[in-house]
Amino acid sequence: MRDSVNAIWSALQQPPLVVVLYDDYGLLESAQEEVASIANPSWPVRRVSTVEDALSTSADTLALLAPVDEVATIEELDGGRDRFVERAVPVVVFLLRGGAGERALTQAPSLLSWVRGNLIDPSAQDPFDPDAAREEFIRHAGRTPEEWLMMRRRGELDGSPESLGLTYRALLLEGPDDLA
């Protein structure tokens, strides 16, 4: 069990640097909000756009660094990552997935060696295989999602938490047209 929320939560426990990839600029804001929502709520949060700004935040602040110049930022972090060694709360760097900043990581061994386990790519870490999930459902419930929902509609399910969880799972796996 491991998805990007788990991975972000885990990475945030391990300062000083975390990298999160996002898909397009319109999603940057929500990516930052998501990280802030997963962080310890007692941490102050600051949004910054340069390494210097990130360095100027106190060591117990969650700094969300959305660089204007991703390549320069990666190079600067590679050349001066140790300036962050005393941080108690990480600096989270947001990079466009597949963009110049991510490509620059191939030439940034020092930075990469620090963030290797703290590099979150939601697109790669949140795969969902509906066929495998259906099989898992059948193994767990002993019937298909559609059969389960038929029982629900006939009022044959009990009110247990197990039934509740399976109902949500069945609704997820059921095709949209079946939701009459």
């Binding site: 069990m1 491991r2 788990n6 885990s10 061994p109 990469l112 290797r116 386990g117």
Partner: peptide, 26 residues
């Protein structure tokens, strides 16, 4: 995963997957 003090092999597999993802970037 379990609010546990000690890891299990499945936890290490997750950690290795994270490291491998990071290595891929190099």
């Amino acid at each position: 995963h379990r609010d546990a003090d000690w890891p299990e092999l499945s936890d290490l597999e997750d950690a290795m997957a994270d490291q491998r993802d990071g290595m891929r970037r190099g």
